[in-house]
Every structure is written in structure tokens, then in C-alpha cells.
Amino acid sequence: MCSSSLQEIQIDSYTLSYEPADGTGTPNNLDPAPAADVTSTTVSGLLPYTSYILTLNSTDQGRQNGHTIGTFKTESAISDLTLDGGGMDQLVVSWGKAQGSQISRYSLSYKPVDGTGSYRDRELDPPAADATSATVSGLLPGISYTITLTSFQPLGNAGRRKRSEQDRKNGVITRTFRTESAVVNVECAEGIMTIAIPRVALPGVDVDSMHLLNASCVATVDDDFVTMETRLEECGTRRQISGEDKFIFSNEAIADEVIDGSGAVIHQGVSLPFQCEFLRQFDITQGGDIMFVIPPPR
């Protein structure tokens, strides 16, 4: 059997140094240093949203008897990105700012969650430096978008430096929000089909040129809706028999793609199928009265 005794470790002083983890600064010693009898301390005056390397040394009678290193990141200058409103083509978001934070500018980017599009920065209309809300418009209905807000803080003595060198990132927040789904109204009346599409559900589409399968059947456009109407035997409407007692009539609301001379797409194309279903005959309990007669095919 072996036995031994450990002498109690004595600490008579600490030193604590810190520096940005990206190497852009030199180490600084915390002044005053932590007292010999403490087990925690606060390092203040740091930059937000920045990783720092902290090095703690302990000594006993002038001889180092402890050494530890850790990397920690300060909090973002902005937080709590929330959805305040929206619609089929836009999202209204707001956020909070840390007390005392300095913000010189923002950038706001967004893209569909399903990966069908790349990030788009609202550089032409970024949120103002003192803003706490913004509207992201020109979106598609019923789509989830990832929104990323980045804040920057000014650097001293900017002088004639480029904009990208006059400030540094001090906050990033990312959240996912979904636009409202578009409600397309299809009305099936006796002998007539009508489709009404909200204009906000057709971003980037030349709505004035929309038509049905027969291009001569053009849309009626107002401030809110794009409307197309056809009789069941007109405008290229297709007729299909389903089972023994049902007729299905279908057509499409079409917008042609518009391309300029250089091959760039000016207006995107779209094709929205719609249909109406009718019972050939509906028997009433008292007899076999026909409630609705489908017009004969031509």
C-alpha cells in the first residue's frame, strides 16, 4: 500500500490577457488583474460579435503554477428577429439592438428555403442605420424564406477608406418566415368558367398579356386581380368524362415568357391549370329530374 499527501495549491496573483481570435489585435492585460481569492471576473470594452482568446495565468510567490486558455464570442449587437406582418408578396420584420451598440449600416438578404433561388441583398434599399424594422417585398406567395440581417459598426478615422473598410460586422441574425398562400378563385357557373388570380401572386409576370389556351381569350386586369372567363366549349377548354356521371372541363391561365434582344428574361412565364367538375345528372328523391344539362360537345 502506498500513501501520499498533496500540498494545498496556493495562488497569490492572476494575470488575464485577451485578444481577438482573428489576429487583428494585440494581447491586452486586464487591469486591474483578478484578485487572488476570486474565481470569476469580467472583461469589458470588447467588440460585439467577435471571438476572443482569453489566457489566464496563476502564480505563487512569483512562480507560475497554472495556465488555461479559452476562446469565447461576444453577443451580437442585434437580436430577436421577428415577423410583424406580411402578405402574399412581402414580409415585415423587426429586431432589437443591444444597449449602447453603434450601427453604421445594415444589409438584409433573403432566399427561398427550398434552395430554388440565391441570396438577394436589398442593397438598393437597405434598412437605415437607426431602423429596427424593414419590409422585404417582391416575394412569392406560400413560400418559406430564410432572412439574414447583418449589422456593421463604424471604425474610427475612416478618412478616405473604401466603404467596406470603414466599418466592421458586429451582428448577424437569421430566421425563417413564410409568406401567405395565394387564394385563386375559380367559379363554375352554368356553361361558364371563371378564374381570378391576385396580382400579388404574379410577381415578375406580364399580366396584361395573360390568356387562356386559346391566345385570343385574353385576361381582364385591374389593380387587384387578373380575371379570365370562358364558356365550356370555347377558348381551348378541354372536356373529359370521369366515371358515368361526371364531366370535367379544364383550361389554363397562361403568361408567356418575355425575353429581350440580349436573351435576358424580362417577364417570367407561368401556366396555371384550373378545372370545373359537373354532374351529368342529379336524381331527386321524388323522381329523376335533371338539374343541370351539360351542353353538347362541338
Rank of each mutant, 00 (worst) to 15 (best):
104 S>V: 06
53 I>L: 04
210 M>L: 11
3 S>I: 07
49 Y>T: 02
259 I>G: 09
175 R>E: 08
142 G>S: 14
175 R>C: 06
191 G>S: 09
38 V>M: 01
211 H>C: 09
272 L>V: 09
210 M>E: 07
54 L>A: 09
198 P>V: 02
124 L>Y: 13
258 V>P: 07
153 Q>L: 13
9 I>G: 01
209 S>R: 15
51 S>C: 08
241 I>M: 04
86 G>E: 09
208 D>G: 11
67 H>N: 15
184 V>K: 07
12 D>M: 01
103 I>Q: 08
42 T>D: 13
133 S>G: 07
17 S>F: 00
225 F>A: 03
29 N>V: 06
244 E>M: 09
106 Y>A: 00
24 T>W: 02
154 P>M: 04
115 G>R: 01
201 A>R: 04
133 S>Q: 10
232 L>G: 03
272 L>S: 02
12 D>F: 06
5 S>A: 02
274 F>R: 03
257 E>R: 04
231 R>G: 02
210 M>T: 03
190 E>C: 12
51 S>K: 10
17 S>H: 08
72 F>G: 03
273 P>W: 03
27 P>S: 02
165 E>G: 15
30 L>W: 00
84 D>P: 12
148 T>Y: 05
108 L>I: 10
232 L>Q: 00
131 A>F: 07
218 V>D: 01
91 L>N: 01
280 R>M: 13
15 T>C: 06
114 D>V: 03
269 G>M: 01
20 P>S: 04
82 T>K: 14
183 V>C: 06
284 I>E: 13
117 G>H: 12
62 G>V: 11
59 T>H: 14
175 R>K: 12
137 S>W: 05
222 D>M: 08
204 G>E: 14
277 E>V: 13
38 V>I: 00
47 L>G: 07
164 S>E: 13
208 D>E: 14
137 S>F: 00
192 I>R: 05
262 S>H: 11
178 R>Q: 11
220 T>W: 00
132 T>I: 13
66 G>K: 10
141 P>G: 05
87 G>K: 11
227 T>I: 00
276 C>L: 08
68 T>H: 13
28 N>E: 05
191 G>D: 05
48 P>S: 02
214 N>R: 04
94 S>G: 14
241 I>A: 08
39 T>N: 15
158 A>S: 12
56 L>G: 02
25 G>K: 00
188 C>P: 10
179 T>G: 15
257 E>C: 04
158 A>V: 10
287 G>V: 07
76 S>P: 06
128 A>D: 14
158 A>D: 05
259 I>H: 08
98 A>L: 11
294 I>C: 12
166 Q>C: 13
287 G>T: 09
148 T>M: 12
52 Y>Q: 07
39 T>V: 11
83 L>R: 14
103 I>D: 01
129 A>P: 00
285 T>N: 15
110 Y>M: 03
217 C>G: 00
122 R>K: 04
44 S>F: 01
154 P>V: 08
55 T>F: 10
73 K>T: 14
